[in-house]
Design a protein around this nucleic acid. Structure first.
Lengths: 109, 109
DNA sequence: AGGTGATACATAAGTGGACGAGGTATCGAT
DNA sequence: ATCGATACCTCGTCCACTTATGTATCACCT
């Protein structure tokens, strides 16, 4: 409970969503999430890579080794059709869930 | 993965928030959350009671045996000062986090 | 030449919360 | 008398996340 950890279960959707626009390699996904959230979504590597393997194991992602712009070796992940479906479903579930929590917590204004 | 399970870490705040208005007993807390969220927040008893004990162990809650309106024996939980502080902090963290997730997921736009 | 920091991947041990399934007991209603 | 709802509890299991550690390459600085 370091105060900056993720709420379990959200990482998968965040990854899938990040890959919806374009294939990216793992490290770039972590960086993208951190940047786009101004540091709020600080994904630890020890959570990120297992998550990617997990998602690939469920065929929600596919991977392929390649090279970055700067010529570095990296594994690129791409969303599968199943992954897109899963993202849509889980994304809806998250929306419903966070609305419910917000309703309980009450708007802070 | 029943499709209605909680996102780990949110249960504590939901409980604390529910007790902010008035002391309630465990079973009533679960029911309140389920009712106020139209069934979205379905708290299993196997998660609820351990959570209450956990929170009491951290002195965020205090408990006392009593009787319900209908005369049934029940353990009533009350928010402590520390619990209120914890709720405020974690509630803010949740707001920040869910906003970040919403920004990534890009809903409502 | 050596050191540092960022990039890029990976796994292992440990923590801890939620689930599922079981249990006890009381009460009102059928 | 049994059933469903109320009200509590705990145990085993699973699994996501943390922390720590490891490999390796590359740019940059001194």
């Amino acid at each position: 409970m370091s105060g900056s950890d993720l709420f379990t279960g959200t990482l998968d959707i965040l990854i899938l969503r990040t890959l919806e626009a374009e294939p990216l390699h793992g490290y770039a996904i972590g960086k993208a999430l951190r940047d786009r959230s101004a540091g709020v979504l600080a994904v630890e590597e020890g959570a990120l890579y297992p998550a990617l393997h997990r998602l690939e194991g469920r065929s929600l992602l596919e991977s392929e080794w390649g090279r970055t712009d700067t010529g570095r070796r990296a594994k690129f992940y791409r969303l599968t059709a199943g992954g897109a479906r899963h993202l849509a479903a889980e994304s809806a579930r998250w929306a419903q869930y966070s609305d419910a929590v917000a309703a309980i917590l009450g708007r802070s204004e």
